[in-house]
């Protein structure tokens, strides 16, 4: 084959492959993407029903309880304005603490309880999930001088 035609052939194979990839990406984005919400947004009914999402906020002080089965934990996640009950079955991450930032991935049940499949609390104990920090700033609940405790006067 002449170089020009060869180049054309490979270019078209590449383009077809790229098209396949774009199709894959678009279908995968349907269920591969999870949105991030704070309890206030959930309370405002911004969350589509039954969809998996990431709930971010602070673990409300004094709300953590171990349930009857011994391996499920219940706690409340707050953004200083509203709070939401969360149930998680499993071993919590090491840096899970009351009063600190947490991200829970799961679904909202009809009873209004958020059932988490995954709980994320990060490596660094002063770490605040970026999405959460941004949301709190947006809601005017961010006090940078609070030393990782954004809502000093938390209403729960």
């Amino acid at each position: 084959m002449r170089p020009k035609r060869r180049r054309l052939a490979f270019l078209s194979v590449g383009l077809v492959l790229l098209g396949v990839a774009v199709a894959l990406v678009l279908t995968a984005l349907e269920d591969g993407v999870t949105f991030f919400y704070t309890p206030s947004k959930v309370a405002a009914n911004e969350v589509p029903a039954g969809q998996q999402f990431r709930l971010g906020g602070l673990v409300e002080t004094g709300s953590r309880k171990t349930l009857e089965d011994g391996v499920s934990v219940a706690f409340r996640v707050t953004d200083c304005v509203r709070s939401l009950p969360v149930v998680y079955r499993g071993v919590l991450p090491d840096l899970f603490r009351e009063g600190q930032g947490v991200v829970a991935i799961g679904r909202l049940e009809a009873s209004g309880v958020f059932r988490a499949d995954t709980i994320l609390a990060k490596h660094d104990e002063n770490y605040m999930p970026k999405d959460l920090a941004d949301q709190l700033k947006e809601q005017g609940q961010w006090h940078a001088d609070g030393g990782g405790k954004p809502c000093a006067e938390a209403k729960s």
Binding site: A21, G32, F35
Partner: peptide, 29 residues
Amino acid sequence: GTLYPLIVDALGLGKISVGPPYFNATFVP
């Protein structure tokens, strides 16, 4: 998939994250 959350955030369309289902569905095929 790695940069998509940044793009969406920059466009003000919300806070999202792209998880393993996306990568498995594109990478494996």
